[in-house]
Amino acid sequence: MIPAETRYARASDLDHALELLAEPDSKAIAGGQSLIPVMKLRIARPSLVVDISRLDLRGVEERDGEVHVGPLTTWNELIGAEVLQRPPLAAVAECARGIGDLQVRNLGTIGGSVVHADPASDMPAVLLALGARLRLRSPEGERALAVSDALVGPFTTTLEPDELVTDIAIPMPPHGSGSAYASVEHPASGFALAGAAALATPDGESVAVTGVGLTPFVLSGDLSDAEIFGDRFAPAEYRRALARVVADRALSAARERAKVNR
């Protein structure tokens, strides 16, 4: 329960952070709500912890048909963001509200959640359903990456070790859209046993699920062919059924919200 020996440095700005992260085996820390636990278990043992929590990468802003969310935005800040109360992006605030407890929501960040890539974390499903893109910065420069291309396996992303998320861009769905998140939580961890985010627009619908596979994924079809994860607590057969239930629930709620938004 005591992390292995490590050093700590606070980044003063983005360039400083990237400079510090050039050290092999260094790791950025935002809210620390995922990294500290794995360090305590000594599953992660970075030589240097680079504190990025004071960087100016926080807040929710609507601009050019997109909503830009700073990666350091905490769950509680998402819950309070005005644009995320409205039907099209209501899934984001709804999802954030159900994460962890108050302490976790005060510290945990959306960027940390995506990069940690816990296959049972909630928010990635929402970002997938909404078609969100990450903006990444490394010493080599900048690039954009769809969340669907970033998440490739349990606790695994396609980010380079020295890359930081600097922005999460969510396309603003058209007028007449609604989104929702529904989940059944694991009774101990509170993470999703199965969670689903849905977006209903006048042009079509999209649903993404989390908790049931090796990584959250966008749904195509009725889940019969999807590779579903199972364990002694919740066998795959159950999770598959649960994923269908939460997908239905999220979709009906999204459609309801879409109606209100017309």
Partner: peptide, 8 residues
């Protein structure tokens, strides 16, 4: 009586 057992 966990959810998976009740469901089953």
């Amino acid at each position: 009586m966990t959810p998976p057992r009740v469901w089953q």
